[in-house]
């Protein structure tokens, strides 16, 4: 599904992402963990086509991020940490706009919008202008807009920041449902508990390098055996930064 090969991103002789490689298969629900500045967002932005790799390659279903970036984006649902919405559009209009950008036809779009409205419990607010939305509502609309075209890979950057418990719960369930449908999800988060609760695989990044990549069960077993809790394990792995 997604193949990252020797990916590097450098700025002024500093490697923000340093020669990383991994592969995500259909149905993988992967947590991308790491301290601030580890290179998570840089990697996600390179996959989303918002940064150019210095070297290495990114392929989604054989579409290369440099030579076939449009086809790659057609199969991708990118959810940024700061949702962008047009303030003067209603949530529904924003969904129609985004669906149209992915080439969805009217009937299909209508069906997909109804599905995502239900999935993310968007309710009546969807007919109000997005400038009136709370952070949680903005994030949910942003997520909904990225799921409309039924992408094979869902790329999520810090989805829980600023969300109230209800919104966080809705968002978690939505991702779980998508994973159950066989979608591949890569979710960057600081929350170890979310990773443990909903993900099937964990990749830990530190100083641009992958320092842990395994199934969630291995992650749990390892930290339960060696450390008293998840935080202690994570701090030990990334201790140079603290």
């Amino acid at each position: 599904m997604l193949t990252i090969n020797n990916l590097t991103k450098s700025y002024n002789n500093f490697n923000a992402v340093d020669n990383i490689s991994f592969r995500l298969e259909s149905g993988d629900f992967t947590a991308f963990l790491g301290p601030n500045g580890a290179g998570k967002t840089t990697t996600i932005k390179m996959i989303a086509g918002l940064l150019a790799p210095s070297s290495g390659s990114i392929k989604l279903k054989n579409f290369d991020s440099v030579t076939n970036h449009i086809q790659l984006k057609q199969n991708l649902g990118y959810i940024p940490d700061q949702p962008f919405l047009y303030d003067k559009l209603t949530g529904l209009e924003f969904l129609k706009l985004t669906g149209g950008l992915f080439g969805l036809r009217r009937e299909e779009l209508k069906k997909k919008i109804n599905e995502t409205l239900e999935l993310l419990s968007l309710g009546d607010w969807i007919n109000r202008k997005t400038e009136t939305y709370s952070q949680g509502m903005r994030q949910r609309v942003s997520i909904a807009s990225s799921l409309l075209h039924n992408p094979d890979l869902i790329l999520v950057d810090e989805p829980m920041v600023g969300l109230d418990p209800q919104s966080a719960n809705i968002v978690k369930k939505a991702f779980q449902q998508k994973a159950a449908e066989g979608k591949t999800i890569l979710i960057s988060t600081h929350s170890l508990h979310i990773a443990e609760e909903i993900c099937t695989r964990v990749i830990i990044l530190n100083k641009g390098k992958i320092i842990f990549d395994d199934k969630i069960e291995a992650f749990k077993t390892f930290h339960e055996r060696e450390y008293k809790n998840l935080e202690a394990f994570f701090l030990e792995l990334t201790k140079d930064d603290f």
Partner: peptide, 13 residues
């Protein structure tokens, strides 16, 4: 602009 980042993450020519 933030808008251009949003649009470039979509499959638009």
């Amino acid at each position: 602009s933030a808008e251009i980042n949003f649009l470039f993450s979509k499959p638009i020519s």
